[in-house]
């Protein structure tokens, strides 16, 4: 399973990493170099393993009582850009004024 330049571009797009063409080229080599070492896993006999989740410890749960982790700084202290209490980000290119439909996200 060799990684191609297109694979690197696709994965970079999924991960929202902007890569130069030079980076793409060198990353193809690096990733293939690393992944070559992973091939040995394909030979391992895994019949003794279980697909069941390990439920030894189970999940501790908390009561439904408000007790937020208190923050020692205002959001403005760490946010790149805030106005009227909102975090601001560049508007999605697909959103003109007045369009509130969310067509890139997921419900």
């Amino acid at each position: 399973m060799a990684v191609s330049e297109d694979d690197v571009r696709h994965v970079a797009a999924l991960a929202r990493l902007g890569l130069s063409e030079t980076q793409v080229t060198s990353l193809v080599g690096e990733l293939n170099g690393i992944l070559a070492h992973m091939d040995e896993l394909q030979q391992v006999d895994i019949t003794a393993t279980s697909a069941e989740p390990d439920a030894t410890h189970g999940m501790r749960m908390r009561d439904d009582v408000p007790n937020p982790i208190s923050l020692h700084a205002e959001r403005e202290a760490f946010a790149p850009l805030m106005r009227d209490g909102f975090f601001l980000v560049p508007r999605l290119s697909t959103h003109g004024a007045g369009d509130s439909a969310d067509d890139e996200g997921e419900g």
């Binding site: 106005r83 209490g85 909102f86 560049p90 508007r91 004024a97 369009d99 509130s100």
Partner: peptide
């Protein structure tokens, strides 16, 4: 659930309320 994005409140920006 996700938060809410308001697209029509600030020119050029989407406003995020979490």
């Amino acid at each position: 659930d996700a938060g809410k994005s308001v697209h029509d409140r600030f020119t050029g920006f989407s406003a995020i309320d979490l």
